[in-house]
């Protein structure tokens, strides 16, 4: 497989989803979904529970394949080049996915091994990643002893170990107190600013959106809007994002609006 250093073209999309549909039996979970996350962009995937956010994440992470449309991560199609695509992807799942009985460091080195890294390199990167989320002093402790916010930060550290170009976060702040929420968001925003990562951040919390973010509104499996935050307000004629979202999703007359 390729060992050459890859040239990253800045114009390349970190994530490109094109015309993806998915059904569970008769239930259309996703209907012709298209969206892009460019490098260095913090993109909010805004949708209520049941909008299809987790299904989309399951498809991007290849829990199952998209049967229609294409999904590519930094120009690598997840179906045709799964290995290279997955190497460039970091994920924080909605559910807590750390081993409670293992230490922070053991959790991180396990993940590094899943990406083929050797012991020494794994430990080096685990140290650096813990520093990134200000948890170096807890490295030898069991995850069980951490607060929810700290565990989330470990998961962010973990998804950075293999140096991905795209981060997916599925409602990462659910169940966190205000302070933890802010620090989790701050860390990820910092990664975007300083390292030019592309981030897709799924949420239903309007107050996590910043004026400079890109927004994708997903509702009942359909993309109703993609673009900037001011653009969303203009599009709907609303004063704030909350009203704009409500106007988009409640209006029975314009279900196809995009």
């Amino acid at each position: 497989m390729d060992t050459k250093v890859e040239q990253i073209d800045a114009s390349m999309d970190a994530l490109a989803v094109n015309g993806v549909s998915h059904r569970f039996g008769d239930f259309p979970a996703l209907d012709n979904v298209s969206l892009t996350v460019s490098q260095g962009s913090f993109t909010i995937l805004l949708g209520l529970n049941g909008a299809g956010k987790s299904t989309l994440f399951a498809l991007i992470t290849r829990l199952y394949d998209n049967t229609s449309g294409t999904i590519s991560i930094l120009d690598h199609d997840v179906r045709r080049q799964p290995t290279t695509a997955m190497q460039r992807l970091g994920v924080v799942f909605q559910a807590r996915t750390l081993d409670q009985d293992l230490t922070l460091k053991q959790n991180l080195t396990y993940h590094a091994a899943l990406h083929g890294l050797g012991n020494r390199e794994a430990r080096r990167r685990a140290d650096a990643a813990l520093e990134l989320v200000s948890l170096s002093d807890r490295a030898g402790e069991k995850v069980r002893n951490l607060s929810g916010g700290q565990a989330r930060r470990v998961e962010i550290a973990r998804c950075m170990l293999h140096r991905p170009g795209l981060l997916l976060l599925d409602e990462p702040t659910v169940g966190l107190d205000i302070g933890s929420r802010e620090s989790v968001i701050a860390i990820v925003r910092e990664l975007v600013e300083t390292h030019g990562l592309g981030v897709l951040w799924a949420t239903h919390l309007i107050d996590e959106i910043k004026e400079t973010d890109e927004v994708v509104v997903l509702h009942k499996g359909k993309v109703l809007y993609t673009g900037t935050v001011p653009g969303l307000r203009n599009h709907t004629g609303a004063d704030n994002v909350s009203d704009a979202f409500r106007a988009l999703t409640d209006d029975p007359m314009k279900p196809e609006a995009a």
């Binding site: 060992t3 050459k4 290279t84 460039r88 650096a128 950075m160 140096r163 701050a186 910092e190």
Partner: peptide
């Protein structure tokens, strides 16, 4: 604090694909 440490952390991101031998 989170921002500061995120900024100074020395890892990240050369995005070289890991060797897969």
């Amino acid at each position: 604090a989170a921002k500061a440490s995120a900024r100074k952390a020395s890892i990240i991101i050369d995005r070289a694909p890991e060797p897969h031998g």
